[in-house]
């Protein structure tokens, strides 16, 4: 079971690369925000997996819970910041 957890976490890290592509090359700022949100939701699972691998779930689950809160707050705060900026996306409005 332990090796299965190890390979699962490796696969999740591989999936993070896709989201990282969107976070780096996304045409608008909001695309980057989507990428960051997707990476964060995978990180919650990754933290739980690390807890199972090292057999310290009771410690890592608190970190995972805090990370879920932090991810949510980051996304809401960043999207509020880009709220009233008309014209910032002019070059990217798809034709």
């Amino acid at each position: 079971m332990n090796t299965f957890f190890l390979y699962t976490s490796l696969y999740l890290c591989f999936l993070m690369l896709f989201s990282l592509y969107r976070a780096m090359f996304g045409p608008t700022v909001l695309d980057r925000l989507i990428g960051v949100n997707a990476i964060g939701s995978k990180t919650v699972i990754l933290l739980l997996l690390i807890g199972f691998i090292y057999e310290r779930v009771d410690m890592f689950i608190d970190i995972a819970l805090a990370y879920a809160f932090l991810n949510f707050i980051t996304v809401v705060a960043a999207s509020r910041y880009f709220h009233k900026r008309k014209g910032l996306y002019e070059e990217s409005t798809l034709k």
Binding site: L30, N37, S79
Partner: peptide, 16 residues
Amino acid sequence: TATHSIVDAGIRAGLR
């Protein structure tokens, strides 16, 4: 809630 806040930012920025 996070999805809705991102959509709201996009609408207010005027993305088609």
